[in-house]
Design a protein around this nucleic acid. Structure first.
Lengths: 217, 217
DNA sequence: AAGTTAAAGTAGCGATGTTCCGAAAGGTGG
DNA sequence: CCACCTTTCGGAACATCGCTACTTTAACTT
C-alpha cells in the first residue's frame, strides 16, 4: 500500500515533516487507521494511541491533523468509499445495457461492502455524527462519494425506463428500493457473519429475479 | 446529610433484597438500562455507573447480576425482541389470508424496529459477541425470540404457496428475501435518520408491489 | 547566527469497564 | 437469643480510553 512500517510493536520515532507539508503524516495516519480498522473490524477498538504507536508518533500529535477521533475514522471510511466510486467506474466501463448496468452496480456494491465491512459499518450502519451545521436539511445528493452509487443507479434506471425495459414509475423511488434491498443483504451479513447464509451470488440473483418478475402467481 | 444525596437523579439507596430473590434488582437494572438505552440511542453511551445511579446502587453491584456490560445490553435487547414476538401474535390474530399475514408481519416488524431503534441496532446492526461455545455452528433457529418472526414468515409463505397464491419455490429462501429487504428499509432509516426518506408506508407498499408484480415491463 | 513558528512530545484530566476485598444484612442452627 | 454462614452490596483502585494544556524541538526565514 504505502510506506507504513509494519513493525509490530513500535516504529522508531518518525522523522519530522517539513514546514508546509506536515500533511505527509496525515496520509500515513489514515493508512494505519485503515489497517487497524480492518484488523479489529470495530471503530471503537481502534485506539488513538495504537495508531500513533504504529505510525511512530504520540497520541496528541494526531490531533494536529484531525480534530476528533470520529473525524479520523470518518475520513478513513470516506476514502474507502472513494475507492468504491472508482470501482463503479471500472466495472461500468463498456457496459451499455441499462439492466446490465444495474446488475454491475449491485454486484460491485456488494463486493465492496463485504470486502470492507468495517468501513461499510461505520458509514452506513452506525449513528452519524450529527453534523448539524445550522439549519441545513440533509439530502441524498450532498453525501459526496458515499452516495455516488445511488446517483448512478438512478441514471441506469432512467435509461432502462426510457428504453422501455422497465415499467414507468418514479425512477428515484425504484433506485432507492434497489439500494435499500442491497443494503439489507450486505448489512445483515456484516452484522451476523456466522449465520448460515446462502451464497451471495445466489441471494443477489434470486433477489433480482424477484424484482423482475414478482412472486405472485 | 446522610442519605439525602443532592444529586438530582439519584435514588435514596436501595433496600437490600432477600436471600433467594436477589434477582429483583436484576429486573430493575434491566428496566433502567432500557430507559437509558432509549434516551441515548447508543449502547456505548449507556454507562454502568449511570445505570447504578438511577437504580440506587453502585457500579460493582451490577456485576453480581450480569457478567459483562455486553451481556447486560444484550439482555435488554432480547427482552425487547420478546415484546416483538407478542406483537406478532397480537397483530396476526384473526388474519387468515397468507398474503395478508405477510403484510401484517412486515408492518409489525417495521413498527417495532423504528419504535425501538436502539435495541434493533444492538441486536441486528452491531457486531455480535462471538459466543463461540466450542464447535457450535450457529443457525437461524437457535436465535430464540429474535428470529421467531422469520419462522412465522416462513410459515406464511408456505401457506401462500400451498394455496397457490405464490409461485412455487424454496419458501425459506423467499422468506429470507422478505426479511432481508425489510431489514434494509428499517436499518437504513435507523442509521441515517436525517435523510429525506419517503413515508414508511409508501416505501413498504412500493416494495410489496415490486415483489408481487416485478418491475420489468 | 539568531529568531520564528510549525510539529511533535510530556504530563495529566476526566470518564469508562472491571476487579479485589471488606462490610453488612438475611437466613439458619444451637 | 446468640453465633455463624451466605448472599448482597459498597469502597477503592486499576487499566485504558479520548482529549487538552503546556513545553520542547527542529525546520525555515532573515
Amino acid at each position: 500500500m504505502s510506506n507504513t512500517n509494519d513493525v509490530a510493536e513500535q516504529t522508531p520515532r518518525r522523522v519530522r515533516s517539513r514546514r508546509g507539508h506536515g500533511g505527509g503524516l496525515r496520509d500515513e495516519i489514515l493508512d494505519v487507521a485503515e489497517v487497524l480498522l480492518f484488523e479489529t473490524a470495530d471503530a471503537d477498538s481502534v485506539a488513538i494511541r495504537a495508531i500513533g504507536q504504529r505510525v511512530g508518533v504520540t497520541a496528541p500529535s494526531i490531533y494536529r491533523h484531525f480534530p476528533d477521533k470520529d473525524e479520523l475514522i470518518r475520513a478513513v471510511c470516506v476514502r474507502g468509499f472513494e475507492r468504491l466510486s472508482v470501482l463503479f467506474e471500472a466495472r461500468l466501463a463498456g457496459v451499455s445495457d441499462p439492466i446490465e448496468r444495474i446488475h454491475v452496480l449491485a454486484r460491485a456494491y456488494a463486493d465492496f461492502a463485504l470486502g470492507n465491512p468495517a468501513q461499510y459499518r461505520v458509514l452506513l450502519m452506525s449513528p452519524h455524527i450529527a453534523h448539524h451545521d445550522a439549519d441545513h436539511v440533509p439530502s441524498f445528493d450532498d453525501r459526496g462519494e458515499s452516495m455516488s452509487g445511488l446517483v448512478r443507479l438512478v441514471e441506469a434506471v432512467e435509461s432502462a425506463m426510457e428504453l422501455g425495459c422497465l415499467t414507468r414509475q418514479d425512477p428515484w423511488m425504484l433506485a432507492l428500493m434497489l439500494w435499500t434491498t442491497l443494503h439489507g443483504i450486505v448489512s445483515l451479513r456484516i452484522a451476523e457473519p456466522d449465520l448460515p447464509w446462502p451464497p451471495v451470488e445466489l441471494q443477489l440473483s434470486t433477489m433480482f429475479s424477484l424484482f423482475k418478475h414478482g412472486m405472485v402467481v
